[in-house]
Nucleic acid binder design. Structure first.
Length: 275
DNA sequence: CCGCGATCCTGGGGGC
DNA sequence: TGCCCCCAGGATCGCG
């Protein structure tokens, strides 16, 4: 799925649709992650105020104090098109009109695996939504700092990789970016979280911020499903140093990159460079 | 409270 | 071409 850089890129690709008015909505009857009790026709005639993001959730702030929450699961895509052609796995499509120019845009949500979801809430209740209320800090925020992470890791006896992927510790760092961040920090994914010393905690924070920042700059990582709202691919996949490179040579020491499985997810790392 | 595995889905790729 | 198995940017739930 899209991790934080992919959702941030999608959000940025939609900003020009702020101030547009919703005129038509198409919705399939397939369930996404949750059985759909939401009737998107409620969106008719609402105006888009702006687009924001929290963790991996795209938030569309609407008139009448409503917010549409969208999560892309593993394979969700959002594109902005001049036409709606109802492709396989299109789950909803929202027609937007720019009142100044009468320009028409379809915002289309497509998700083959249907692990994503959509919900509509009163904006004042947004932070209390069950999917949002227990989230940790944003990785690029000041709150994600040495003192915070040191305290969190001290209580964790599982491996550092799985720990960082826990959204209650820090949000949006998924399987690609944790693998890349641990390589950058030269820390092995199998290290127990509470065994990291102060220098390692600082390095890990710096590496996560650096990798996430670079990935946003490059428009995210396109492996199989992810595309930008324009339909174009992201570029960070060309910067992978360990993710997906098992059996290939480490760019630093030339030994082979290893692949192991931790909590059901693949981990890629260099046993020589990461301690 | 913790760690771990199963689970929700479809599609692509490799082996045979 | 086809079948079968494994794998995939996530996150929750239930078990011991």
């Amino acid at each position: 799925m899209p991790e934080l850089p992919e959702v941030e890129t999608i959000k940025n690709g939609l900003l020009h649709l702020s101030k547009h008015r919703i005129t038509h909505i198409k919705q399939s009857n397939k369930k996404l992650r949750f059985p759909s009790t939401l009737d998107l026709q409620k969106l008719q005639n609402l105006e888009i105020i702006n687009f924001t993001r929290r963790a991996r959730y795209l938030l569309i702030n609407l008139s009448e104090n409503k917010t549409l929450i969208i999560h892309l699961g593993m394979s969700g895509k959002i594109t902005a098109n001049s036409k709606f052609t109802n492709l396989k796995h299109d789950h909803f499509a929202i027609n937007l009109i720019d009142s100044r120019t009468n320009n028409n845009t379809w915002l289309i949500y497509n998700d083959a695996r249907r692990f994503g979801f959509v919900d509509l809430v009163e904006t004042k209740n947004l932070e209390n939504h069950k999917m949002l209320k227990n989230l940790g800090p944003e990785p690029l925020s000041k709150d994600f700092d040495f003192a915070y992470l040191k305290e969190k890791l001290a209580k964790k006896s599982m491996n550092i990789k799985t720990t960082i992927m826990d959204n209650q510790i820090v949000v949006g760092v998924g399987n690609i970016y944790i693998n890349e961040s641990l390589f950058d920090a030269k820390i092995s994914p199998i290290r127990i979280a509470n065994s990291l010393n102060d220098i390692e905690v600082k390095k890990l924070i710096n590496s996560i911020k650096k990798i996430i920042t670079k990935a946003i700059k490059l428009g995210g990582s396109s492996i199989s499903d992810y595309v930008k709202t324009s339909g174009d691919l992201g570029n960070f996949q060309n910067s992978f140093k360990v993710y997906g490179r098992s059996g290939e040579k480490c760019l630093l020491c030339k030994r082979n990159i290893q692949k192991i499985v931790q909590n059901g997810r693949s981990s890629f790392f260099c046993e020589t460079c990461q301690k």
